[in-house]
Write a protein that binds this DNA or RNA. Structure first.
Length: 499
RNA sequence: GACGGAUUCGUCUAACGGUUAGGACGGCAGCCUCUCACGCUGCAAAUAAGAGUUCGAUUCUCUUAUCCGUUGCCA
């Protein structure tokens, strides 16, 4: 049974990259008939952000991902919040103490900072490992008596992992293939902090083992920690899961990981939903009018591809097609334009009826009275022109509102000296139309135009100007059917009045 | 700096060692048309550089370059 987990930290809203990591985990699990677990990694209480945990769960739910186990779902491997698992970590830390895999270190953060600063001055990096641990304050360098004394005095200490001195570690990544590390480059990482809570490394390994995780799919930023994690599994005598490190999502232009700043500068959200982070408002895709399906579709294709030309995928199709083998190795630049295109595709896919339902909500929110109008028909006419529901109003407001002014540029182009006369005749022709369906009106008007051997523009352009107020919109005959005879005649007369 | 990863059109990407290096976004042009969009058609646009292996390299190896990540008692 494949079991994967998504394990975010509740340090703020969930970033796009995190959503994609969750998505790939989810797709991988479901493709293989496996289970997906949500675990909250909140071992750093200094970075805890109120509401972030809820936000993460709500966002993933909005995206359409369902967890088999987690804080809301429960499950037999809980608790699923690391801060609720302190006792478990203490127990396993003791196991490492007992088998000599870790040692106590009494160095203060200040002391270490000084050492790091000093090393940096010389262009070097301070590493806490076999080469330095002998000269630092820890249970390896100090005598048993000194250590006992320090502990008796309540001197705070951390537990560090004793990394072997010089071992070539050959590991494997499901995306990148074989990777080798030399343990001499590694740090004796802190596993247990002075506050008694484990660091990510310990908690992560213990939980993944206890929760029977078979595949760890996470961001590439974890790749340097892979040898440590392998060593930890060894120290416990456990078999490690398979690892897959996902490429990063990069800024649309420039260098580095995509950040909130990029979104703010270029005007696109970096988070699935809105989040108020201590007064700092983080924009969300949801609030910007994206469909979760489109958002997920876009994210899925950012770093993964099916090997075919298909680009539009439902969640079920993604589950069917997704494999780790087709995940790319290199980082992907985020493209806000393509994201919009995806949303447009989903508008196109929706029926006019479904779009109408969403549009009605938008109209309600704007306080527009649309009771006299056939909204489904309007959506049928207009939906292909928009990428977002909220764009619909700007594209369609002329249906609901009689134009009060006319676009000068188009008016100049459309109206000649005889236009008033022509429009007056148009009014009389339309008045005679029993039915106002497009076929009837078009037939009547075109017959008249052709009879005079005029170009269509002579009549249609000012006609359009009268109805819309400017030179845009769908077929005039379609529009006048929607607004009705009375309103149509009124609008033409309004134009005549200003000619 | 050290270690690790990566490198195909501007961007996302495809291509059993053999293709005119394909698709999509964006751009440009044309078509459609009563207008504006949509749509359709077309155009421009790439294998980082250099060696090697091979009959043949985008694909395998090495070197260089560039970019990214890590280098915290953060995750």
């Amino acid at each position: 049974m494949v079991r994967v987990r998504f394990a975010p930290s509740p340090t703020g809203p969930l970033h796009i990259g995190g959503v994609r990591t969750a998505l790939y985990n989810y797709l991988f699990a479901k493709h293989n008939g496996g289970e997906m677990i949500l675990r909250i990694e909140d071992t750093d209480q200094t970075r805890y952000v109120e509401g972030a945990e809820e936000y993460i769960m709500n966002s993933l739910e909005w995206c359409g991902m369902k967890f088999d186990e987690g804080i809301r779902e429960g499950g037999k491997f809980g608790p699923y919040r690391q801060s609720d698992r302190k006792d478990i970590y203490a127990k396993y830390a003791q196991q490492l103490i007992d088998n000599g895999s870790v040692y106590m270190a009494f160095d203060t953060p200040e002391e270490l900072n000084e050492l790091r600063a000093a090393a940096e001055k010389e262009g070097k990096t301070f590493i806490y490992n076999f080469s330095t641990r002998g000269s630092l304050r820890n249970s390896l360098s100090l005598s048993k008596e000194e250590v006992d004394e320090l502990i008796k005095n309540g001197t705070p200490y951390v537990l560090r992992f004793k990394v072997p001195e010089n071992r070539i570690l050959e590991t494997h990544d499901e995306i990148r293939g074989d990777i080798t590390f030399n343990t001499k480059e590694m740090d004796d990482k802190v596993l247990m902090k002075t506050d008694g809570l484990p660091t990510y490394h310990l908690a992560n390994i213990v939980d993944d083992h206890l929760m029977e995780i078979t595949h760890v799919i996470r961001g590439e930023e974890w790749l340097p920690s892979l040898p440590l994690h392998i060593l930890l599994y060894e120290a416990f005598g456990w078999e490690h899961p398979k690892f897959a490190h996902l490429p990063l999502i990069l800024k649309p232009s420039g260098k580095g990981k995509l950040s909130k700043r990029d979104g703010d500068q270029l005007g696109f959200p970096v988070f699935p939903m809105q989040f108020n982070n201590n007064g700092e408002m983080c924009k969300g895709y949801k609030e910007d009018g994206y469909f979760p399906e489109a958002f997920i579709n876009m994210l899925a294709l950012l770093g993964w591809n099916p090997g075919t030309d298909q680009e539009i995928f439902s969640m079920d199709e993604l589950i069917k097609e997704f494999t780790i083998e087709r995940v790319g190795k290199s980082g992907s630049r985020f493209d806000p334009d393509k994201t919009k295109w995806f949303n447009h595709q989903y508008i196109l896919k929706k029926s006019a009826k479904d779009v109408a339902e969403l549009f009605r909500k938008d109209l309600d929110a704007r306080g527009i009275d649309y009771s006299k109008y056939d909204i489904v028909r309007i959506c049928e006419l207009m939906k292909e022109r928009i990428s977002f529901i909220h764009e619909m109003w700007d594209e369609t407001r002329f249906f609901f509102e009689t134009p009060t002014q006319f676009d000068e540029k188009f008016k100049k182009k459309a109206c000649k000296e005889d236009t008033a006369e022509v429009m007056t005749t148009l009014v009389s022709i339309l008045e005679k139309c029993e039915s106002f369906d497009p076929h009837t009106t078009e037939e009547a008007v075109k017959t008249w135009i052709e009879g005079n051997e005029w170009g269509f523009g002579k009549v249609m352009s000012p006609f359009r100007l009268a109805i819309v107020g400017e030179g845009k919109g769908p077929s005039v005959f379609d529009m006048i059917e929607v607004i009705g005879k009375e309103e149509t005649l009124k609008r033409i007369k309004n134009l005549i009045a200003v000619l």
